[in-house]
C-alpha cells in the first residue's frame, strides 16, 4: 500500500516534469524565539521540498520530530506538549509563487518573490503569504525566506508558567537548495 502511495506521489509530483521540477530532501527550516528571558532556536535539515518552475507551485514537508533543539527538555516539551508530534507528526506547506513572471529561470541571479499558500501544522491550516528570494544558480535553484508565525494561530497552547520564555511570534527561516528532477 505504502509503495503505491509513494509511487503515486512521486509520479504525480515529479515524473510529469519534463525537466520543469526541482526538488531536495535535504532542505533547511529553522525557527527562533527571542525574549528578555530566553533565546530558543530549533533546526531541521531534513526538509522535503518540490518546486515546479513552469507553474510556480511549491510544496514543503517536514517531520516535527526532526526539529533539533540545543536543550533536550525543550525538544521534549516541543514534541509532547506543544506540537503533539505523536498525533500530528508532519507539517506541510503548499503554495504558489504569485509573481512567477518576474523570475527568469534561464538567467542566473536573485529574484524577489511572494509565495501564497496553506501552512498546515498541529492539525490547523492557515493561509499565509510570505516574501522570499529565488536564486537561479548553475545546475539548480535556491530558495530562501524569513517570515513570522504566531503559535496561537495553530492552536499551540503554551502554558502560563513558560509563556514569558517563548516569544508571541516566532521567526521562521527557510533555506532550500533544489536540484533538477531527472525525467525518466
Amino acid at each position: 500500500m505504502k509503495r503505491i502511495v509513494i509511487l503515486f506521489t512521486i509520479s504525480f509530483l515529479f515524473l510529469a516534469a519534463n525537466g520543469q521540477k526541482f526538488m531536495t530532501k535535504n532542505g533547511y527550516i529553522g525557527f527562533s524565539s527571542h525574549t528578555a528571558i530566553d533565546d530558543i532556536k530549533a533546526d531541521n535539515n531534513q526538509v522535503a521540498a518540490v518546486l515546479d518552475i513552469s507553474t510556480g507551485d511549491m510544496v514543503f514537508q517536514v517531520l516535527i520530530k526532526s526539529f533539533h533543539f540545543e536543550k533536550a527538555l525543550m525538544e521534549e516539551h516541543f514534541n509532547e506538549n506543544y506540537m503533539e508530534s505523536d498525533k500530528f507528526p508532519k507539517s506541510t506547506f503548499r503554495g504558489k509563487i504569485i509573481n512567477l513572471s518576474s523570475v527568469d529561470f534561464n538567467k542566473p541571479g536573485k529574484y524577489d518573490v511572494t509565495v501564497d499558500g496553506d501552512l498546515n501544522m498541529h492539525d490547523v491550516t492557515n493561509k499565509i503569504s510570505v516574501k522570499g528570494t529565488i536564486e537561479v544558480v548553475q545546475g539548480g535553484v535556491n530558495a530562501s525566506s524569513k517570515f513570522n508565525i504566531v503559535p496561537e494561530d495553530y492552536k499551540i497552547n503554551i502554558p502560563g508558567v513558560v509563556r514569558d520564555n517563548i516569544a508571541k511570534t516566532l521567526e521562521v527561516t527557510v533555506t532550500i537548495k533544489y536540484a533538477p528532477v531527472e525525467s525518466k
Partner: peptide, 22 residues
C-alpha cells in the same frame, strides 16, 4: 546543509525512498 550539518543518504531496496541520516 545549513551550518555545515552533514546529511548522508543510505540506500534501501527502493529507488524512490532511502534512509537519510543527519
Amino acid at each position: 546543509g545549513e551550518a555545515n550539518v552533514l546529511n548522508v543518504t543510505i540506500k534501501s531496496g527502493s529507488d524512490l525512498s532511502s534512509v537519510i541520516c543527519t
